[in-house]
Design a binder for these strands. Structure first.
Length: 540
DNA sequence: CAGCGCTACCACACCCC
DNA sequence: GGTGTGGTAGCG
């Protein structure tokens, strides 16, 4: 359904491009200077194209959203590395109004968006509410996942104004992260169920403790409308439901609502960057007075940069000791159960629901673990955006390269490095883990690595050309030409021979223009306002 | 010329008592 | 009146 939607969108976009640029002309290849350090700085109008470009890059680059003009929430998408973004971002003279795009399906941190209207809630003590919330969340993490943390692990950012109390919390858990931000949302809704009940209550005058009978703290209260179905996955000590009445606030029209914004856990959510402001406003996210988190000191990285990196929700790298936390809704659990029942009772059939966003890679991994008459399967997968790493936990098949035989009671992992197009094996065995064992790398079969690109991006065959072109352009660095963004001439635009190539090249061209201005001259850089980036975009 | 991903809400069809 | 469905305004 989603695929169909995005395909339809892509077709519409393509149609409009053909209308706008019906004639094709000659493509002029660009010069590249391999001696210069790699630099990636590209702007796109479409989020999909930005992500496609990221997938074509060997470097660890990310998608950021930049707000364009005030009024409509229109955005453009920037692809660059954390380091390069910080280099241009830190002066705060340009690139105001930046957002991290939290990629769907990617491992990420636990985060919260908190807000209430000060006028509508004159009694509310924001700092106290934040402290109580952190306490509640830490308790929940402890009980549900046995993850230990405290307020010192919570990066607390403030963006309050006269009218609004506004915070972002980003949890810096040790050796733990969530599977993706949808799971974060499920977790947050789950642990806030008692508070949600308080606001959906018909009787406005009802006292909170009404709700708090015998119910176990984080169980019994299902999400959504299913009232009879209980949470089954997690065994919890029975205890009284905590008093979460402190989370209930009034919105600007006097209705009860939650201090915690539950609308920020959607796919590809834009989350405002540390020190960025919304486009209409001049209030940026800054370290809160009552923040207790202090990042590790480092010789190479400034403290500010450390704060910046800590604030990034999807900045979670794979490590052997990292635990991936999941939280399914009863709905997805039911679906999984249905699937399980409909496809016969064998355990491996559950694989059907363990498909990653890369079905071809899944198939390849399954082929790897179906050897020597053993029918292995994918128990689960996790995707690490920074390294573009797919980590598969394997079931049944336990062959370990380290010991040259199967493990008796520990499962293995297959790791697929999409950037370098290789795969290797690690495992859960404590001895192997202690040695930090990693097998040799083996190349991915070309049909897998290529086909996954072509199919997953839903490129047409023409687009495949565009894709390989952008791969070739990958090492390209910005030209040292002094051309300013505004000067990029129309002639450049008409010189492309392949209409399908236009899209990527257009964006690349824009980006280069912005890039030149940004990279060319350090002192000039300081004078470049956001509008100039926009101008570069509009000069077509 | 050009964002994205939802959810709440509404209108309507259909069904059952 | 209850329930499902399809389409969309508007929010984050």
């Amino acid at each position: 359904m989603r695929k169909w939607e995005s395909m339809r969108k892509q077709i519409e976009e393509r149609a409009s491009h053909y209308e706008r640029k019906p004639l094709s002309s000659v493509y002029r290849p660009r010069l590249s200077k391999p001696e210069e350090p790699p630099s990636i700085w590209k702007l796109f109008h479409r989020q999909n194209q930005a992500f496609n470009f990221v997938k074509s890059c060997k470097e660890n680059v990310h998608v950021f959203a930049l707000e364009c003009k005030a009024g409509d929430g229109q955005r453009i998408y920037l692809v660059t590395s954390y380091a390069q973004l910080w280099f241009y971002y830190k002066s705060r003279k340009t690139l105001l109004h930046c957002y991290e795009v939290i990629p769907e399906n990617a491992v990420c941190k636990l985060y919260f968006d908190l807000e209430f209207n000060k006028l509508a809630n004159p009694e509310a003590d924001g700092k106290r509410m934040v402290a109580l919330l952190i306490e509640h969340v830490c308790k929940a993490l402890e009980e549900l996942y046995n993850v230990h943390c405290s307020a010192e692990d919570v990066f607390n950012l403030d963006s309050s104004t006269e009218e609004k109390f506004s915070r972002h919390l980003i949890f810096q858990l040790h050796d733990a992260a969530f599977k993706d931000n949808i799971h974060v949302g499920n977790f947050v809704r789950k642990i806030l169920q008692p508070a949600l009940h308080l606001i959906t209550q018909k009787d406005e005058d009802k006292i909170p403790e009404e709700m708090c009978h015998e119910a176990s703290c984080f169980s019994d209260v299902p999400l959504e409308q299913e009232t009879s179905e209980a949470w089954e996955t997690l065994e919890l000590p029975k205890q009284h439901s905590p008093d979460l009445s402190f989370l209930v606030v009034k919105n600007s029209i006097g209705e009860k609502c939650l201090f915690v914004d539950l609308g920020v856990y959607t796919r590809n959510r834009n989350f405002r960057l540390y020190q960025s402001s919304k486009i209409g406003k001049c209030v940026a996210l800054e370290v809160a007075e009552d923040n207790r988190f202090i990042p590790e000191q480092s010789k190479d990285i400034s403290e500010e940069n450390q704060y910046f990196l800590s604030s990034l929700v999807s900045n979670v790298r794979f490590s052997d000791s990292l635990r991936i936390l999941t939280c399914d809704t009863s709905q997805t659990k039911r679906k999984r159960a249905e699937y399980f029942n409909s496809t016969g009772a064998s355990a491996e059939s559950i694989e059907g629901f363990q498909c990653s966003p890369y079905p071809e890679v899944d198939q390849f991994v399954i082929s790897l673990v179906n050897k020597h008459a053993i029918k292995g399967g994918i128990r689960r997968w996790n995707y690490f955006f920074p390294e573009e790493l797919l980590v598969y936990d394997i079931c049944k098949y336990r062959w370990c390269e380290n010991i040259g035989r199967p493990h008796k009671s520990n499962n293995i992992m297959i790791l697929v490095d999409l950037k370098n197009e290789v795969w290797y094996q690690k495992c859960h065995d404590p001895v192997c883990k202690a040695q930090n064992f990693k097998s040799n790398c083996f190349p991915l079969p070309t049909e897998v690595s290529l086909r996954f690109l072509l199919k997953e991006e839903e490129f047409t065959s023409d687009e495949a050309d565009e894709f390989s072109n952008s791969l070739a352009k990958n090492s390209q660095i910005p030209s040292s030409s002094s051309l300013l963004p505004g000067e990029s001439s129309d002639a450049d635009w008409d010189d492309k021979d392949d209409a399908c190539f236009l899209e990527a090249t257009e964006d690349a061209e824009f980006a280069d223009a912005a890039d030149r201005s940004l990279l060319g001259d350090k002192s000039a850089m300081d004078d470049i306002p956001d509008e100039l980036i926009m101008e570069a975009l509009q000069s077509s």
